[in-house]
Simulated scan of single mutants.
Amino acid sequence: MSLVVNHNMMAMNTARNLNSHYNRLSTSTRRLSSGLRIGTAADDAAGLAIRELMRSDISTLHQGVRNANDAISLIQTADGALQTIDEKLIRMKELAEQASTGTYDSVQRAMIDSEYQAMASEITRISMATDFNNIKLLDGTLSDDTHDGSGLNSVGKLKIHFGTGNDSDEDYYYIKIGCTTASALGLGNNAGEASKTNGGFSISTQEMAQLTLDAITRAIVSKDNIRAHLGAMQNRLEATISNLSIQAENVQASESRISDVDVATEMTEFVRNQVLSNSAVSMLSQANQLPQMALQLIG
């Protein structure tokens, strides 16, 4: 290489190397400070795309767990009300048994029937009043087999969504709760004409009281079927929550392997680039002094 003063090629070459080392040092500093191997699309475009999809799935799975927990709370609310209804049905059967015997006259049976009708009215009140987040649970609102979520308010059976997609086999299922008003159970003086024949309408006569014993048994079985369904759904939701938590954990681990920086490896790279940068700075200082040799010849 000729000794010249117009272009200092050694300094230019050293400056280029210094810039390269400094850029890599900057990248290592960013990765170590953020903990992420992929900070920008330039680091790994394909890895970035996979990571963002995984992050969206992780957030969705966590929300799915919260959705399932909310559904469990709803079920427990309904089950608590049904437990109270169960107590009323037991009392009604006790009253029917009392009215079935021949040791009471019509006036006394009328008094017994008065309490019986009051219990029926209370069952209806509980069924109409029980709600969760303004969703009626026991009045028949959730008893329809068809679900329709196209409107502002969904109708029909309750859809519990917890998965990351919209596949019926993987991402959601339904909770159906039958109507538990006294008339729906076939009890009380609002139960309809069939209850007059089959029992449940009243216990004001000995014959109707005896028929009512069977009617209340049918009502208890109907109510217990609803509670059994709710209990099964609660167990299923608890298993779903466990599965979703494991799934979110595994996806998080996969996202970490793609996205997170290996601190040991990156620290080694950081020290290497730091040494090279310091070396390049020293050499650039030396290269900038080389044209002085040409000036000595001129002088």
Rank of each mutant, 00 (worst) to 15 (best):
A96E: 00
M10K: 05
N235S: 12
D260P: 02
M10G: 13
N235M: 10
S279W: 00
D139M: 02
N6L: 05
D260L: 01
A11I: 06
T27R: 01
R91L: 07
I246Q: 01
V221C: 13
K223G: 06
T29G: 15
G80L: 00
T268N: 15
I135A: 05
N189Y: 03
V271T: 13
N153T: 14
T14I: 06
D113C: 02
A42M: 03
T197A: 13
G39Y: 07
D44W: 03
Q63W: 06
S256C: 04
N190I: 11
A129S: 10
R37H: 07
S259N: 06
D70L: 12
I126R: 00
G199T: 10
S183L: 11
G200H: 14
Q296G: 07
G80A: 07
T180L: 06
D148H: 10
I85D: 07
Y172G: 11
A129I: 05
N6S: 08
K223A: 09
I112S: 08
R236G: 04
N69S: 14
D171G: 14
L89C: 03
Y172H: 02
N273Q: 07
V251W: 09
S282V: 12
K136P: 06
L276A: 15
E207K: 06
K93T: 09
L158W: 09
E97V: 07
A239D: 07
S254N: 15
N198A: 14
A248F: 01
A118Q: 04
A264P: 05
S195V: 13
L61S: 04
G64V: 03
Q206G: 07
E52L: 14
M119K: 10
T164G: 12
G178R: 00
S28D: 06
H21C: 01
A118C: 05
I160A: 12
G165V: 00
E94Y: 04
L48K: 15
L36Q: 09
D139I: 03
E238H: 03
M267G: 10
D148Q: 01
N134S: 13
N17L: 12
M54G: 05
M9H: 12
M208I: 07
T212D: 11
G80I: 02
R55Y: 08
M208C: 08
Q252K: 13
S202E: 09
M1H: 09
Q289V: 01
V271F: 14
N243W: 11
A184N: 03
H147T: 02
Q247P: 12
H62S: 04
T101P: 10
